[in-house]
C-alpha cells in the first residue's frame, strides 16, 4: 500500500485499514460467517419449494416461473446489503472502539466507504453460495439475467447503503438503544416495495408511497423481465434517480447526526 500524507482529505489506505479490520474480525469467528449464509439459504429454499408447488397447480404461476425465487434473492440482496453495512458499524459500538476511530485521522466519508465495501464482501460471502444452490435445486440461474441483474443490483445496493448510513447515524447519536432499527427497519420496505406482488395490488394511496421507493422499480422490473421477458430500462433509470437523491440525503443526515453526537457527548458513550 502507498503511504499518503495522513492529513489529506481522502485516503484509500485508511479505507483499506478499516476493511482489513472487519476482515480480521470475520475471519476470526465462524458463527459470523455462518450467519451470512444461513438465513438467505433458508429463505431461498422455502420460497423455492413454494414456487415449485404453485407452478405445478396454477397456469399463471407456471408462466411466471422464477418470480418467487428471483424476488427472494433480490430482497435478500437489499436486506443483507443494509445489514452488512449496519453490522460492521455496530461491531465498533459493541467493541467500544468508536472513540479510537473518531480520534484517529479516519474521516467520516472514509468510514462510510469502508462500511460500503464490507457490505459488498458480506453479500458476496452470503449470497453467492445461495444463488448456486438455487441453480442446482430449482434450475433458477439469477446470473442469466445478465445486464438486468447488474441494474437491479446497483439500485438495490444503493438503497441498502442509504438506509444503513441513516441507521448508523441514529445509533451514533442515540446510542445502542437504537440498535434494533438496524435489524428491523428494512422490513418496513417489505410490503411497501412490493417484493412478491405487483404495485397494482396495493391501495392507491400506498401505490404513491411505493413509487417513491427505489426497490419498487426493481421488483416491478424483475417481474417484467421474468413474466414478459422485457427489460424496463425506464424503471431502472427512475430508481437510479431516486437512489441518488436518497443517498445524498442519507450522507447529509449522517453528518448532521455525527455533529449532534459530538454536541451531546454521545461518542464517549457506548451504552443505551
Amino acid at each position: 500500500m502507498t503511504t499518503p500524507n495522513p492529513a489529506i482529505a481522502f485516503s484509500p489506505r485508511r479505507i483499506g485499514a478499516m476493511v482489513l479490520r472487519y476482515w480480521y474480525l470475520m475471519r476470526s469467528s465462524w458463527p459470523r460467517l455462518l450467519e451470512l449464509i444461513y438465513w438467505p439459504m433458508v429463505q431461498m429454499l422455502m420460497w423455492g419449494f413454494l414456487q415449485s408447488y404453485v407452478t405445478e397447480n396454477a397456469t399463471f404461476f407456471a408462466r411466471a416461473g422464477g418470480t418467487f425465487i428471483g424476488a427472494v434473492l433480490l430482497w435478500d440482496l437489499l436486506f443483507r446489503g443494509q445489514l452488512g453495512f449496519s453490522i460492521s458499524f455496530l461491531e465498533e459500538m459493541w467493541a467500544r472502539n468508536m472513540g479510537n476511530l473518531m480520534m484517529s485521522p479516519l474521516r467520516p466519508a472514509e468510514f462510510v466507504i469502508a462500511l460500503m465495501a464490507m457490505s459488498l464482501v458480506r453479500l458476496a460471502i452470503g449470497m453467492v453460495p445461495v444463488t448456486l444452490v438455487a441453480m442446482w435445486f430449482f434450475q433458477f440461474n439469477v446470473y442469466s439475467l445478465g445486464f438486468a441483474l447488474a441494474a437491479f443490483f446497483l439500485n438495490l445496493i444503493l438503497t441498502s447503503w442509504s438506509v444503513g448510513i441513516v441507521v448508523s447515524g441514529v445509533v451514533l447519536r442515540n446510542g445502542m438503544g437504537a440498535e434494533g432499527l438496524a435489524w428491523t427497519i428494512m422490513f418496513l420496505l417489505l410490503p411497501l416495495t412490493c417484493v412478491y406482488y405487483p404495485v397494482a395490488t396495493l391501495p392507491y394511496a400506498l401505490q404513491i408511497v411505493a413509487w417513491a421507493l427505489p426497490p419498487t422499480y426493481v421488483f416491478e422490473g424483475m417481474r417484467a423481465l421474468l413474466i414478459e421477458h422485457t427489460f424496463r430500462a425506464d424503471l431502472m433509470a427512475w430508481a437510479l434517480v431516486l437512489n441518488v437523491v436518497y443517498f445524498a440525503g442519507a450522507v447529509a443526515a449522517f453528518l448532521k447526526l455525527l455533529e449532534s453526537a459530538r454536541r451531546q457527548g454521545s461518542l464517549m458513550q457506548t451504552g443505551e
Binding site: R14, A17, L20, L101, S104, P105, L106
Partner: peptide
C-alpha cells in the same frame, strides 16, 4: 496494524 494504517505510518 489496522491503527498503523489509519495513522498513515510508513
Amino acid at each position: 496494524r489496522v491503527f498503523g494504517n489509519l495513522y498513515g505510518i510508513p
